[in-house]
Write a protein that binds this DNA or RNA. Structure first.
Lengths: 238, 238
DNA sequence: CAGTGGTCTAGACCACTAC
DNA sequence: TAGTGGTCTAGACCACTGA
């Protein structure tokens, strides 16, 4: 009897819950709609709140939900595509970066290594913020060694650093993407709690064969899909 | 009284814990070393196990730790850089992809949309697995519409599909990266539990101005740093 | 088999938002 | 101030690994 019974390894409750919720989101809820609160959902499914939260966390990680303390859990719109591989062919229509200040500071060790500067050597640090569709999607720190912009002596404002960098004639760039969690300052810029999952994009800007600057941009992982290559417009509507 | 008291928002315990642990990892542990078990660590820090786990989860997400059921928690090596922007200039030395089978199936709706096929139209699906440094880093599903490889009638084996695709003369490609969680089948290929965080790379392969194939590759987010652009060798040693 | 991390419970209190 | 999600506790049991 029943050798066919797969007896499938007992699927964790939260995993099954997630599947059920995901289907409900597809069929019964509209984007932006508010879900019942966690205590009620947990009761309705007959699980502890912590278990329900485990399912919600995964759905939020996948960009299906958005949770805000004091407000509630809402159905998230599809992720927006943000272009990363900066226009290597032709100018991009508009850059939605906003510079948010500059200072002179010692970069993290990993950045210093990429720049080829000494571990304790201060560099220009420009903080920028990227806004797309009215929402903050990324916070970036651009590290520029003083050697790259010799015209600037001492502390300089953000615009001056960026201008000098452009004058340098950047040859190309190099990028890496990895998963991280938002530091407190980035989290505030992104309107998220500290520790929120982010996609960290590290860009090396080259000029004359050397690394002229390094940018470390943290993108909201819940709301963004990073696009590389040809100018990919958002696919949501197609 | 005491308006000056900033009264700094009480930092969550798990957040503080994470910081403390991260520093300990840097100074007191070697890569591969096994940490004390969760119950002991929790006791040592005077917190509940769930709180300790919250800190460990974040550190694992950041690629600092690796946890294996039945074994323990170990200090993870630095993430390995895996090249994504496939050699558009010149052949890449070696492709560490291994094909793992093929079938004919109806793709997910999102993929069908990219391919421009009907929602219920079956296509060739090639499953590949990428191994780097002896470890599985990615599981990919390559979707190839039958229209792209007219020479193949009916079900075909993986190699035949890939060969025909090459003969097509691919023009270029287009990529997007987003955060996801591993499905059960991918998880098994990646030697992780279902739900593990992954970086999903969606590649559109072009031929003659059309989308000839779409690849959906899931990379282990804990162990991988995806690199784009120039052939970036692993930076770990530099 | 003992020991590990993974899941789950049933509570409690806190920080935040919006009315 | 009422209601939300975020944090935290102190337990319990399960699934898996390796000796």
């Amino acid at each position: 009897m029943g050798t066919t019974q797969l007896d499938t390894v007992p699927e964790p409750k939260y995993w099954h819950l997630k599947t059920v919720l995901a289907e409900a989101l597809d069929s019964e809820f509209a984007v932006g709609e508010i879900l019942p609160n966690e205590r009620e959902l947990a009761a309705r499914f007959g699980v502890a709140r912590a278990t329900l939260r485990q399912a919600l966390e995964q759905l939020e990680l996948e960009g299906r939900l958005q949770r805000r303390r004091g407000v509630g859990t809402t159905v998230a719109p599809p992720r927006m595509g943000v272009s990363i591989g900066s226009a290597k062919d032709g100018g991009h229509a508009e850059d939605d970066w906003e510079t948010a200040g500059a200072e002179t500071a010692v970069p993290p060790a990993a950045v210093a290594r990429l720049l080829g500067t000494d571990a304790d050597e201060p560099v220009h640090v420009v903080r920028r913020s990227r806004v797309t569709g009215g929402q903050p999607v990324a916070a970036e720190l651009l590290y520029v060694p003083t050697a790259s912009v010799p015209a600037l002596t001492g502390p300089a404002d953000a615009d001056a650093v960026l201008r000098e960098l452009q004058n340098l004639g950047l040859d190309g760039e190099d990028q890496a993407v990895e998963l991280g969690s938002a530091r407190a300052d980035d989290a505030k810029q992104l309107d998220r709690l500290p520790g929120a999952p982010v996609l960290v994009v590290t860009t090396r800007h080259f000029a004359e064969g050397r690394t002229a600057a390094v940018g470390v941009a943290t993108y909201r992982a819940d709301t963004c899909r990073l696009t590389f290559g040809s100018d990919t417009v958002s696919l949501s509507g197609v």
